[in-house]
Nucleic acid binder design. Structure first.
Lengths: 216, 216, 216, 216
DNA sequence: TATGAATGAGAATTCATTCAT
DNA sequence: GATGAATGAATTCTCATTCAT
């Protein structure tokens, strides 16, 4: 998870002639698009925008670089095209929170899977740095706001209530906790957190979510 | 013997008359180094390694780009030089945790200041992306481990106790919370968190830290 | 806070409208490679490695600089790529020495053409300066050794004979003479040598080659 | 012809803080000048003009880089300052040729010492590549012309005689031989030439010089 | 539709040189 | 006289992008 862009140039390979006889990707525009999008999301999420080259993405997708321009106009266009999909996924993942225990379990599961690639990576990518892009900014804020509102409302009291602001703040602390875990798991080997299973996390998270949202 | 290549650089003439009178930076090596280091930490922390150009850093520091090579050998060298300093600062910042209330307050203050620049930024930078650098990796892990150990021991029960691992996990959740807050505050306008003061955060954080570390 | 690298390259806009209609080099990779190689050999040979800029080479070849990286990876790679070709040419040029008179005539012709560009330049380039490159070193030595062995064997007595070493030394003096002439002709206006024709050189060279190799 | 300066950048060291407490070179202008000149001649001769950095020279001389500008105005100035000295040395070395045997022996000795540093290196440097510098050009030509004239006159018949041109050509072939040997010895390990002693060379060289200059 | 060749803009780094001390 | 700090102009290399096939 995480993302960033500190990746160093030590990884650069010879761009030269790879033995491939050119498999001649089956001329399927829709599929090619998807391949590119998937590869792009993975790369952007793990390396950050600046550290990712379009060639890497194309190679990972197994298609020709020029097709990025063709389908997405530019690297920037490809990046923007990544956003809605990610938002969607994240939304779906966090979709059905209804009571506090369920919330804690969802977070636990989300965190547990987050060492591999998954929606959470993308979410973090969305969080990491303005990117100068207005639209990305709005999307990002929307996702986070929606998520924290859902958490707050799951606490049983509507967000607009007296004390609503305090509740919302607490909901956002839960969000922060969730993000922080994903961040730590995805980018470090900090034990025991790094290899904790969803079950390991469930109990402490229930305590914390309860404390945060049950008003206590 | 021999050798040669005596061709002269006839193109490289005296760089002479440029309009600027050149403010002529106060010739103080130590200070220049520090200026560069500070600027670099800010930039790397906010934009990531790849997205930061050495020229930006030099401009922000108000010195000539070539001095980066002079003092740090390369962009990479400059990056590495940022690490120990940051580690140190973070260590100092988190230095004196003794009881749980104090921990919560420290986190609250840390988060509150984190929208501006501060040790937390740097800490996050450390977290964000392997960067391919072994040394950075070790430093990062060391900082995080040290921090979570301090939290665990502040809970009153030594980390090696029975249940030590569980306690450590809980300490790391507190760390995650702390990081998540800093992350959210520094990169979004998510209200009410974005403009919460240290006081606003104190109460909910005390609850959470207590829940996490007081066992219960 | 945080970091990342999603900052966009807002500065890098479409490079679009430049005045030139761009002659649009005939898209022929093999030919482009050769153009670069030829230009590089000329430049490296006449100016040396350090004094030659990749831009010069590219300009002389009439192609874009970036293609040097594309086809040869780096300036150094281009340099190394020059070696085998040169070795080959030199080998071919010096190919068929059989009797002493023929040797003298070959040297005379070689020297005569050496004011312009030709295999001899390249040969000299190979000779000049270690270049720190192991491979270049071996190639160079191989060429010279092969050449002097051929000279020695043309003298009629196998190199392994008693006196073989002495013969080889004499063969190498002939080689030295040959190189020295090429050197002088290519880099100075020393008359009458500078404008001597192959015929002018034939007689004295026959004398010298005979003296050197006919044992005498 | 050729020339080179193929030295690669692999040798670059960290310019950083060397432990030296600054020996504070005894403030002796004349001596500093000479130190710089000596170092410069060595470097220029072995690496070529372009591949030599002023810092290298200064370091080798053990003085501060800025003194190059102070005493010689520029790198180019330093290079030009190297020429007369070298010319002088070369002239002295080749000074007293009177009869053919002596010539051969002088060449043999010159070649024998040329694997180390010595006047011959410099001479070769002078030969290698125009260097774009008019003055260097003239000096170089002057040295070579003078040398070949001396050789011709040593042959006993004045250069202006009938057949003078032919004689001069032959003298220049001797010069070529001499240079070629120095070149080979200084830049390759071509055996047996590489380790031949002055005695080893004496006999064949006498033969060759006699053949070339004794008319016959 | 897909491919690989070609391009131009910039990024990091090197280096001769100039100042202030 | 000597030093080390600072500067600006290249130089090599990378990379997003456009074209021709």
């Amino acid at each position: 998870m995480t993302a960033s862009s500190t990746s160093r140039p030590s990884t650069r390979e010879t761009p030269a002639s790879s033995g491939k006889p050119a498999p001649q990707r089956r001329r399927d525009a829709a599929n090619t698009r998807r391949l590119l999008l998937d590869a792009a999301r993975r790369r952007f999420a793990t390396q950050g925008y600046a550290a990712t080259t379009v060639r890497e993405i194309a190679d990972e997708a197994g298609v020709n670089v020029a097709l990025i321009s063709r389908y997405f106009d530019s690297k920037e266009g490809l990046f923007e095209a990544c956003l809605p999909t990610s938002v969607e996924e994240v939304g779906r993942a966090a979709g059905t929170v209804e009571d506090l225990t369920q919330i804690a379990d969802t977070i636990a599961r989300g965190a547990a899977e987050s060492s591999a690639e998954g929606p959470h990576q993308i979410m973090l990518m969305l969080l990491l740095r303005p990117s100068g892009d207005e639209r990305a900014e709005r999307l990002r804020l929307g996702v986070l706001r929606g998520y924290s509102e859902r958490l707050a409302s799951a606490a049983g009291r509507p967000a607009a209530d007296p004390g609503g602001d305090a509740l919302m703040l607490r909901a956002q602390l839960v969000l922060a906790l969730s993000l922080g875990m994903a961040l730590l798991r995805s980018s470090t080997n900090l034990e025991p957190l790094a290899s904790a299973t969803a079950e390991d996390l469930a109990e402490p998270l229930r305590d914390l979510v309860n404390t945060a949202l049950a008003g206590r």
